[in-house]
């Protein structure tokens, strides 16, 4: 598998606060990576550094081997990433249908695997709420819409930041089911979530961040792993 996106030696700051300390992080095509760590350890900052939302002061970000460090966020996203941010990011003046239609575009290789119809088949609840404003949906429906909107861009890499946070267990299960089926289609993903047990079974690789540094990067974690107990608190 070739590397799709990689950050090398990333040092990111918020003002004088040094948040990422020389992180190396990469995702290969088709790979599902779980990004784990307690709150404030740098998970979201790492994602934002990769996407150019926050520019690292040192280090390099590459996509398919091309240097995209310092590039505009929209230009990085256009290279095949769909980003579902924490908080879902609904627009209160757009309906469900408008959210989906505005994002529709073929993948970088011309793929149109994810169509409007397929999204509605995947999330039948959305089909019932097409005329509703995005912010008038329940939390679970908003999350489905956020994922559906992301898939409408036919991405190579899907980034899910706390996709199941604050959702009822039944809805959460539904979201995980969809994420599993997305994985089966060969789309790479980076998943940030507090549900460690699900991540252990789902992801191909696990990366644990502690205070802005990678303390674990591998695929042999189990629920009993000492490092999980020490750094995640499981």
């Amino acid at each position: 598998m070739t590397t799709f996106i990689a950050g090398t030696g990333l040092h990111t700051y918020y003002g004088s606060s040094h948040t990422l300390h020389g992180i190396d992080f990469a995702v290969r095509r088709g790979e599902t990576v779980a990004l784990m760590g307690r709150n404030g350890m740098g998970k979201s900052t790492l994602l934002k550094s990769l996407l150019g939302i926050v520019n690292p002061r040192q280090g390099k970000v590459t996509m398919n081997g091309a240097d995209v460090t310092g590039a505009d966020t929209h230009a990085i996203i256009r290279r095949g990433i769909a980003y579902v941010p924490e908080g879902r990011g609904m627009f209160h003046n757009l309906t469900v249908r408008e959210h989906l239609v505005m994002s529709a575009r073929p993948g970088n290789d011309g793929r149109r695997d994810w169509t409007y119809e397929r999204i509605l088949e995947t999330f039948p609840r959305l089909a019932e709420r097409l005329g509703s404003l995005g912010t008038h949906l329940s939390g679970g429906e908003q999350q489905m819409l956020a994922v559906g909107r992301a898939l409408m861009t036919n991405p190579d890499l899907l980034i899910l930041d706390e996709a199941t946070e604050g959702l009822a267990p039944l809805i959460r299960r539904e979201i995980w089911h969809v994420i599993r089926s997305i994985k089966e289609t060969g789309i790479a993903s980076i998943i940030v979530d507090k549900n460690v047990n699900v991540l252990l079974g789902l992801a191909d690789r696990h990366v644990i961040l502690v205070k802005g540094e990678v303390v674990y990067d591998g695929s042999d974690l189990t629920p009993e792993s000492e490092i999980l107990k020490r750094h995640i608190g499981v």
């Binding site: 939302i53 966020t73 996203i77 256009r78 990433i81 941010p85 627009f91 003046n93």
Partner: peptide, 11 residues
């Protein structure tokens, strides 16, 4: 008009 950064995040 609602959130420019969010739109940028959609590409």
């Amino acid at each position: 008009g609602v959130n420019e950064n969010r739109v940028r995040g959609l590409g």
